[in-house]
């Protein structure tokens, strides 16, 4: 374990047994993940749907066990924590603020729930903590007695954040935290996450398909493709000079609202393959503009290049 590593994932794979067209098959959602999340950083995980981002987050949250390999939080296996100890350390925030809140509980009850479960503090103390948490995420006091159905999407996501923060965890795992929100609301939630991170020195794992959001918030980026991390490194470096062709394509595909833009013409072909039948060799080769015979046969191992790592036989050049 590196000295500053808070989350360590080593050689993690995750298999699911699925029934595809009536046949039992093994779906390898994660195929050997190595990842370190340092204390206090925002690490973003990006990649197309189905590449394994949520599965990886479930291993980190200790909700699921890896089929092989290890996931540890502060040096201890994520699944060895009892529920309460884990909840005190790491909390999830999900994409959909509609389904993640119990519709029959008041906002005050929802936010206090983690304290109640832990038997922490008396009624009055809990009340003070709930009010503090609501203030911190920008929820008006009177909403304490409202129900989730009476709140807007942005307000509900604030409730989810308040609930996650009330037990003072060290780590937040945010899975597409703003994807269900309108842009004018999205920016407020992003601002809130950035502010709370600074105030509480949080460590954040941010899963997002929005590369512009990732660029804005993350210190480091891990790019996933078909159950592997194909490139990782400091955000600015990855954005300025990606080494993997898939990263290049993701960056090219960013659409921003600026005048005089042209639609990108991507250099990658075809579509994301099924994880049930991963292509041989480098899993990205069927879509890669640089693929040759080697790529079709040999899965490229991760190679280091200072603080970035990538898996590619024919990496893009670094700028001179």
């Amino acid at each position: 374990m590196k000295p500053d590593a808070l989350i360590t994932v080593e050689g993690a794979t995750k298999d699911y047994i699925v029934h595809a067209e009536g046949v039992r098959a093994t779906l390898r959602a994660l195929r050997g993940i190595d990842l370190t999340v340092r204390r206090g950083e925002v690490l973003a995980i990006v990649g197309e749907s189905g590449c394994g981002k949520t599965t990886l987050s479930r291993l980190i949250l200790g909700i699921e066990e890896p089929s092989a390999g290890h996931v540890s939080l502060e040096g201890k296996a994520a699944t060895d924590y009892d529920r309460l100890a884990r909840a005190a350390l790491i909390q999830p925030i999900f994409q959909d603020p509609y389904s993640s809140l119990n519709p029959r509980m008041t906002i005050g009850q929802i936010i206090a729930a983690p304290l109640v479960v832990r038997g922490r503090g008396g009624r009055r103390e809990r009340h003070t903590q709930v009010m503090d948490a609501m203030r911190q995420v920008g929820l008006a006091e009177h909403l304490r007695n409202a129900y989730p159905g009476q709140l807007s999407g942005g307000q509900r996501q604030r409730v989810a954040i308040a609930r996650a923060l009330i037990g003072e965890p060290e780590i937040l795992v945010c899975d597409e935290p703003t994807s269900a929100l309108d842009v004018s609301v999205q920016s407020q939630i992003l601002n809130l996450i950035a502010e709370l991170r600074a105030r509480f020195s949080l460590t954040i794992v941010l899963i997002s398909h929005n590369l512009a959001v990732v660029h804005h918030l993350a210190d480091r980026v891990a790019v996933m493709y078909l159950g592997q991390i194909v490139e990782s490194g400091p955000t600015e470096k990855i954005f300025a000079s990606p080494r993997h062709h898939y990263t290049r394509a993701l960056l090219d595909a960013i659409l921003v609202p600026e005048a005089h833009r042209r639609l990108p013409r991507l250099t990658i072909d075809a579509e994301f393959p099924s994880p049930l039948t991963p292509p041989p060799g480098c899993a990205f080769h069927p879509r890669c503009p640089a693929a040759d015979a080697v790529c079709r046969e040999i899965d490229p191992p991760p190679v280091g290049d200072g603080d970035t790592r990538f898996r590619c036989h024919h990496p893009l050049p670094t700028p001179a």
Partner: peptide, 29 residues
């Protein structure tokens, strides 16, 4: 590039643009 309505302007300021928006700085809303 030159939104006339305050709503259009507000929307444009709330979207991060790599290379233009300062990383980590508060976004408009």
């Amino acid at each position: 590039s030159a939104p006339a309505h305050p709503y259009t302007e507000g929307l444009l300021h709330s979207i991060p643009v790599p290379g233009r928006t300062a990383r980590g700085a508060p976004l408009g809303f």
